[in-house]
Design a protein around this nucleic acid. Structure first.
Lengths: 248, 248
DNA sequence: ATATTTATGGTACAAATAACTAAAATCAGT
DNA sequence: ACTGATTTTAGTTATTTGTACCATAAATAT
């Protein structure tokens, strides 16, 4: 708790001590099990203090020479093997007292978390169990109390997921390469609930937007007329950038 | 550049050196001069290196015991005297090499910027000239090259401003307490350009949404029929939370 | 075969948006 | 005090878009 003089960038000499930070990234990683229609969140068990024995969002501290995004990708790669994914920055949580390592007496180090939001394909995703700490997909509704302020971060991520689903083509980062319109609709229902158009109107709208290309193949799984299989056409999506996909 | 062993939270002993950070906040502070219909950004002159003599976004480094938001408010209060304003977190810029103080040889300290987005009423805002460094409102189009990656941050802030204007009642944080529908329309035009509804349809929509209460008074400034003065009714806005105000 | 299930392709109605027209209330100048 | 310019206000109308609902097609299960 040294109260030395620090040189600030704007003025000459200031008696106000600056905080020293370690910066972490914590990832809210979502996936959707399209078989069971469940929205899943990736959590890892903390073996060491603080919060030993608690589940938490997968995170790490940023290393020398590493960008925030690099760190976020690294965490992801340590926990899960995927080839495709979506990732963006979410929000930065940085109040004092958010990490017990920095309180109550020590003003030495602050821990700040730059949270990220990621989506992976459930089928492709292979969890990496390192034997030391647990790792698991949790259905969103059943996520227990997490370490630190991670429940708050998760809530923030879920809000972002819902918003993005409305305007962005992120659904296609979660679905398999080819999918039926029924799959797509179910995905929206699993994440958003039932508060939007019925299947028929959803269908009509998506097809009219014109970025779903029919593969010509059919999917037949059990009863019912076989559904056409579609593929997302990223180029054809461009004009639809600002148009909503669904109306919540 | 010590390569000591660091204790990481998740594992035992790791030879990977973590980065040490100073955390800054940089504010994109917008205002609108409703007299001259100009969108303005607040910039300050840097008296000291790095980037001495460059304009930059007003920023500061986070102090011990201070939250990110507190730091953002502090910067604002140091530069400008206002009673009402809007402020929210924008994005966190944290790559290595974004601050010359951390490169090229030194891995000692990284500088990370948690940018914030703020709106103030131009009439209320009184700039605080501390004599040492300059401070000025710049029309957005005429902002020169700024220090660090601040032009990028500014671009990000402007995108946020446009998006918020579509769905949030932030216009009323910039306008005076009472205003005419013409004022409101002009504000939207200055920020968004001409790419949306004409005045007549804008008017009809806003009035129908029902959160503008007529004060009963009229504004007469020069030629033309005097316009009714309105006030924003925050309570009545609630139901309109998700409805767009304009269509871009 | 017949019922059941799921996919597909519609229609009809209500609501919202965009383009446009006209009237009302002021001012500036003659 | 009339005239024209200017700005606010108040509509009308055509077109598009969203919603609710229905009919048929193509498969499976019994």
């Amino acid at each position: 708790m040294s109260a030395k003089l620090h040189r600030t960038p704007d003025h000459s000499l200031s008696p106000v001590p600056l905080a020293d930070f370690k910066v972490g990234v914590d990832n809210v990683i979502f996936s959707v099990d399209t078989q069971q229609n469940r929205l899943l969140v990736l959590v890892v068990m903390r073996p060491d203090p603080p919060f030993a024995g608690y589940w938490s969002l997968p995170g790490t501290l940023v290393r020398q020479g590493e960008s925030l995004e690099d760190a976020a990708y690294r965490v992801l790669a340590e926990k899960i093997r995927v080839n495709t994914l979506y990732l963006e920055q979410l929000y930065t949580f940085g109040g004092p007292d958010r990490d017990p390592r920095e309180s109550p007496t020590a003003f030495d180090v602050r821990y700040l978390s730059v949270s990220h939001f990621a989506l992976v394909r459930f089928e492709d995703a292979e969890l990496i169990a390192d034997g030391v700490s647990g790792i698991a997909w949790y259905p969103l509704a059943q996520v227990p109390q997490l370490a630190f302020d991670h429940n708050e971060i998760l809530a923030y991520g879920y809000r972002r997921l819902r918003n993005k689903l409305e305007y962005s083509p992120i659904a296609f980062d979660v679905l398999p390469e080819v999918f039926t319109l029924g799959d797509l609709y179910q995905l929206y229902v699993t994440v958003l609930g039932e508060g939007f158009s019925d299947y028929s109107n959803f269908r009509a709208r998506l097809l009219k937007l014109g970025f779903l290309q029919d593969t010509g193949h059919k999917a037949s799984r059990g009863a019912g007329r076989p559904a056409s299989l579609y593929r997302f056409d990223a180029a054809a999506f461009e004009p639809c950038k600002d148009k909503p996909m669904v109306f919540i």
